[in-house]
Simulated scan of single mutants.
Amino acid sequence: MTPRVAVSIAGTDSGGAAGLAADLTTFASLGVHGACVVTAVTAQDTLGVRSVHRVPVPEVGAQLDAVRGDLPVAAAKTGMLGGAAVVDLVAGRLGRGGDQPVPLVVDPVLVATSGAELGDRAVIAAYRRVLLPVATVITPNADEAEALLGRSLPARDAAAALADLGCMVLLTGGDPDGGECTDWWAVPGQVPVALPHEAVVTENDHGTGCTHSAALAALLARGEAPLEAATLAARFTADRLRAGRDWDLGRGRGPVAHTHSAPEETR
């Protein structure tokens, strides 16, 4: 059967843990063909981001046009967008009300785990002004939610406040409690719902947010309802964290496991 297609609009990670590397391998693991639009090239390893080279906006648009002009895109997700003009571009072409709307998952990548800034005030303002109102689901962690809202709120309230901008919200993270973490699912005009899931203790967690949001996009591309896709995406991510928790790769926080089994005859 011909697979569904999802496109990731994000930056590269030279260490192979996050960004497009995580997105494309996650799509493949879930049976979805992955296309990509490169917004930035980073020099990055398990210790942090060393440099960022942003792709010119016309080239980002050309990549997106090439994908959409040839492939039947069933869902899209964003990672690091790098500039307000790229945020505007994505909102205009892919979000609800755009010329070819598809389910759009927005992972608002603003600050790397190492602390490197990947989105400035203009980017945050553009997210709020044009992208979040046309997104299907956004997947911020607590720090990203605080940046988008401009204030710190309890997770439940933060999810509700972000949903007021017009999109569904999957606020990820939360401190582990008895082996579980709690995400919060919020829909505009409704009471947020707690989504507890397994907490995997590991130092190999570089790329977790990208993997989670890519899994959500792949599941939407396959036709899953948003809440079911959110639940399954958490389960998939926990499985990948378990698979790589004993790895010894890199000098910092190692990568989430993005490997999967090859056919028997190629092993």
Results as ranks from 00 to 15, higher is better:
M1F: 08
V5L: 05
A6Q: 10
A6S: 05
S14C: 01
G15T: 03
G15Q: 00
A18L: 03
L24F: 10
T25M: 13
H33R: 12
G34P: 02
A35D: 05
C36K: 06
V38C: 10
A40R: 13
T42G: 09
G48T: 03
G48I: 10
V49T: 11
S51G: 12
V52K: 00
Q63C: 06
L64P: 04
D65M: 04
R68E: 08
L71G: 05
A74Y: 00
A74G: 08
T78D: 01
L81G: 02
A85E: 15
V87R: 04
L89E: 00
A91N: 03
R93W: 00
G95P: 07
V102S: 01
L104Y: 13
A116K: 14
G119L: 13
D120Y: 09
V123Q: 09
A126H: 10
A126V: 08
Y127A: 06
V130E: 14
V134P: 05
T136E: 14
T136K: 05
E144I: 02
E146L: 00
S152A: 15
S152M: 10
S152P: 00
P154E: 10
A155P: 02
A155S: 13
A158H: 08
A159D: 11
A161W: 11
A163Q: 11
M168C: 10
T172D: 00
G173M: 06
G173E: 06
G174C: 05
D175Q: 14
P176T: 03
D177Y: 03
C181Q: 15
T182P: 02
P188S: 09
G189N: 06
V193F: 03
P196L: 01
E198F: 03
V200E: 00
T208W: 13
C210W: 07
C210A: 04
T211L: 08
H212M: 14
H212N: 03
A218S: 06
A221C: 07
G223Q: 14
P226Q: 12
L227R: 15
E228T: 15
A229Y: 05
A229C: 07
L232C: 02
L232R: 15
A233I: 13
R235L: 08
D239T: 14
R242L: 14
G244L: 04
W247E: 09
L249C: 00
V256I: 13
A257D: 15
H258V: 09
H258E: 08
S261E: 14
P263D: 02
E265S: 11
T266S: 12
